[in-house]
Structure formats: structure tokens, C-alpha cells
Amino acid sequence: MEYFFQQLLNGFQLGSVYALISLGYTMIYGIIRLINFAHGDIFMLGAYFGFYAITRLKFNFFSAIIFSMVLCMIINVIIEKIAYAPLRKKNVPRINLLITAIGVSFFLENFTSLKIIFGPDYQPYPRPFKIITFDFLGLTISSIQIIVFLITLVLLLILDYLIKRTKIGLAMRAVSYDKDTAFLMGINVDRIISLTFALGAALAGAAGVLYGICYPQIYPYMGVMPGLKAFVAAVLGGIGVISGAVLGSYIIGMVEVFTAAFVSSTFRDAIAFAILIIVLLTRPQGLFGKEEGIKL
């Protein structure tokens, strides 16, 4: 029983990281209908930026997170401006946008694999603070887990405030609902899209650093699987729905940890996707998404 609750805690930890990544997926999909395959690589960049901030620049943990978030934001906005914006203006089919995202993803992975950049090898991640473990009702909680939960919570609250309470959030919702009408209402659609990419990247950057301290090993291809999983979580929750992405992430995190603990760790990817397929077949709009009617 204790083992079970311990795994629940681990699932919660993994789910938190997924939640931060999947929010970017869901927001970007919501706003330009793009499965941004490069998002997992932004997460990877975040992990590396945090790594260098701590090891080379001797930043403390929190400034390393902020540093990584800011750099990821800047990079993602540049990517959006260079790679996606010209395509959107040309009104090309959506598949081209997707292939471009895949191209960006490959580029980030292979470019950072170069020896003069990050190098292709695994790097051990530094632990910038002391790890203290607490015993609580027979469970072992480490300071890492508490920090991950707290940071995730704070970021989620900030995002929620941004989207629900500010003008920018209102504009974002308007653009994701109907781009053309939003434009007619005087919203600067391009700026809102850039902003969405920036927000998503900031969360992914933070997730990268958190992932690094939880699972202390990083490498240029580390973003692929967590990226896919976070995307699965976003779809599971109902793509475009913020709260859905968070809940979906925790579900995927739990499923993965429990499969590894009780079945076999080799099956964890398969089970997560099997659940996704089953959910999609019974509720194509995801667990918390709204149903769309047929248009004739």
C-alpha cells in the first residue's frame, strides 16, 4: 500500500513536468492548429540552458529557471518568426506547417548534438540544492518533489491569471476562437501568436530544468519522448483546453509510473498511447473538450 502511494507521488512528479510541456502544445494548437513537434526540443533546450546556468554561470536554482525560461521564449519567438510566420502568410496547406515543425525539431536536435554546441553525449545534471527527505505518513517525500510541485503550481496559477484575467489572455482566446474576426476586432494576431509561442516556451523551459533535477541526465534527443507524451496528454484532455492539458498530463504521468512499477517499464510508452487511442475512439474531442458539430 505504501508502495502504491509512493508511486502516486512519483506519478504526480512526472505529471507536473508533462503538464508544463503540454500547456505549450495545447495553446499553440489552439491558436494556429499546429502540432508543434519542435516543442519537445524547446524543453530540451530549457534543460541545457539550466544546466549551463548552474554549472558555468554559477546561478542559483531559481535564477537558472528564470534564465532558461527567458532564453527559451526568445528562441521560440525567433523560430516562429523565421519558420512559421512566412508559411502562415502564404496560406499553404497545414501539412507544410507540420513538416516545417518537424524540420525545426530535427534541426534543434542535430544542431545541439554537434560537438561545438552541446555535444551528443549524456550529461549528468547538477543538483543545485540539498536533497532532504521527509517521512510523512510512511511516505518518503524529497525536497525535489516539493519544489517541482510548488513551481508547477505557481506557474499554472500565473498562466491561469494571464489567460483569464488580462487583456492579453482575452486576445489569445479570441484569436484561438476565430482568427479573422479577432483581426477585424483590432487584435494584432501576429503578436498574439508570437506571445503564445513565448508563453509555451517559457513553461517548457521551466519543465526542462525541473526534469533535469528529477531525472538527472540530459542529452539532445531527450525532448522527443516527453514531448510526444505531453502532446498525448494535451489531446487526452481535449486539445485547446488548458485545464484538460493539466489533468491529461497527470493521468499520463500516473499511467506511466504505474505501468513501470506494476507491469514492466518497457510497456510504459505503449500503455499511454493505447489509452489515448481508446479515449479518442470513444470521445474524439478528448476528455474535457467540446464537441464540434458537422458543418455542411
Binding site: A83, L87, I99, G103, F111, L114
Partner: peptide, 11 residues
């Protein structure tokens, strides 16, 4: 590195 850049350019 160049291959994905070409891909983006072609798209």
C-alpha cells in the same frame, strides 16, 4: 543540420 534547414526552405 543542413537537411532540416533545406526541408524548412523547401516547404
Amino acid at each position: 543540420v543542413i537537411y532540416p534547414l533545406l526541408l524548412i526552405l523547401l516547404m
